[in-house]
Design a protein around this nucleic acid. Structure first.
Lengths: 248, 248
DNA sequence: GCTCATTTGTTCGTATGTATC
DNA sequence: TGATACATACGAACAAATGAG
């Protein structure tokens, strides 16, 4: 082993910058640095961890590319939240045609309740089979007509206090932003299943349509650090007043 | 202006590496380098364009991050095609449940025909109102049952010869790969509109369902370099045999 | 409105490690 | 084995944005 390797721990084949990245990620995941925090200057971090400035820059820039951090010249390096992290994660847009106008949706918070465990959902959220769930129901309006009905399920023990959040706050701010603000959990990835359903009594009632009307249903599973699922959501969509738009 | 700026053209405020990026992109877009080509070594390019090695590396690495190039140590830097560029762009998966099995779809090529202009589609593809279209129809099977019916529209003048491609080839290889191979056009981004439709006579016939059955319809607009649209596709999906899965 | 310390951004240079053919 | 090409790591200097005073 030559001099250039002096900075590495014995036999470790992974590049220094990669170990630095993991170290920074660790400090974010453990909550030492939370979204919005400014982390120490690159020079200070480089000195603290005993690497060159270039190596530290490479590690930081990689994390910026992955969306964990963002930087502002003259200001510093800041831990990113969901909003900053992924333009992608924005809620679906609603429009009638490519290049057309986007519908503005008004959120109505129906209720937030603690409910008993449900087999499938507890499984998806990797909770014990007997843990309680938090259920948050919202309805979205477009021009005085209901267009979306979404029901979110979250582990109750992880989100103590969410049920106390003011209705007005939930109606103004996207749920994932509220969660990030209260609990520091950013959304890092999502999985969804799209399908067709017939409206049951509850859905028909909320969306003000006849029972058994066909509707689009989107099941969404959201993940945070280390691919841990933290929300399961099912959204029932009417699509006659605007289609769902996605870019990728 | 100090000495450090000597490499820049008069008042140009954009960084050198950015201009280098654009230069490389230009050579890809004009077809000077096509997907699969190895571009000159970073040292040679740096010398040719009169910048330092570090600056050239930064430009190339940015293009790698954006998916235009990929690098193999010891081998070289290669112009990427769609497959390499975006894991994302993969065709939808079909499965019944999160974490469940993915259905394997068999492609059936129905036909490829030249058809007259259609107002909306010519508009979306930014073609003149009188230009002909190529229409390519495919049906996808899951376990001996039709599950997807997709109709693609492409500018005929851009894709001369596509209608001659063997049925067997279209049934084995994703359309965007065929197009990239024949015409060197990679898919760089997509936009989609999701909605609910009632099957018309044609769709009902192809999918072997009763007319007016509710189905999921996905309109897809695909873009290549410089955000130029090159394909419009509408896919009609049955979702009772598996839901559409996406990760983002 | 200006100056100054801080912090990131850009550009250059050099040396050495490592994968490919 | 050797030549080629990319990967990692170090160092140095100056530019440009930010915010405090």
């Amino acid at each position: 082993m030559k001099a250039a390797n002096k900075g590495r721990k014995g036999g470790d084949p992974s590049p220094i910058y990669f170990n630095i990245q993991r170290e920074i990620q660790k400090r974010i995941e453990t909550g030492e640095w939370v979204p919005g925090d400014r982390i120490p200057a690159e020079r200070k971090l480089a000195a603290e961890l005993g690497v060159s400035l270039g190596t530290m820059r490479k590690a930081i820039l990689n994390l910026v590319a992955e969306g964990f951090l963002y930087r502002v010249q003259g200001k510093g390096t800041i831990v990113a939240g969901t909003t900053m992290m992924r333009e992608n994660l924005r809620y679906y847009r609603f429009l009638k045609e490519f290049g057309g106008w986007e519908a503005v949706l008004k959120i109505e918070h129906l209720d937030t309740t603690v409910i008993p465990a449900r087999g499938r959902i507890n499984g998806l959220l990797k909770m014990r089979a007997d843990e309680q769930l938090l259920m948050l129901r919202r309805r979205f309006w477009s021009r005085k007509k209901p267009i979306l009905y979404s029901v979110s399920f979250l582990p109750h023990n992880l989100f103590q206090g969410l049920e106390e959040v003011a209705k007005s706050r939930i109606e103004k701010i996207p749920l994932y932003i509220v969660i990030e603000g209260m609990f520091g959990l950013p959304t890092l990835s999502n999985q969804e299943l799209l399908g067709l359903d017939l409206a049951d009594a509850e859905v028909a009632d909320v969306l003000e349509i006849p029972e058994k009307s066909p509707i689009l249903s989107i099941e969404l599973l959201s993940f945070t650090h280390r691919k841990r699922p933290y929300e399961f959501r099912i959204t029932h969509c009417l699509t006659d007043r605007g289609k769902i738009h996605r870019e990728f």
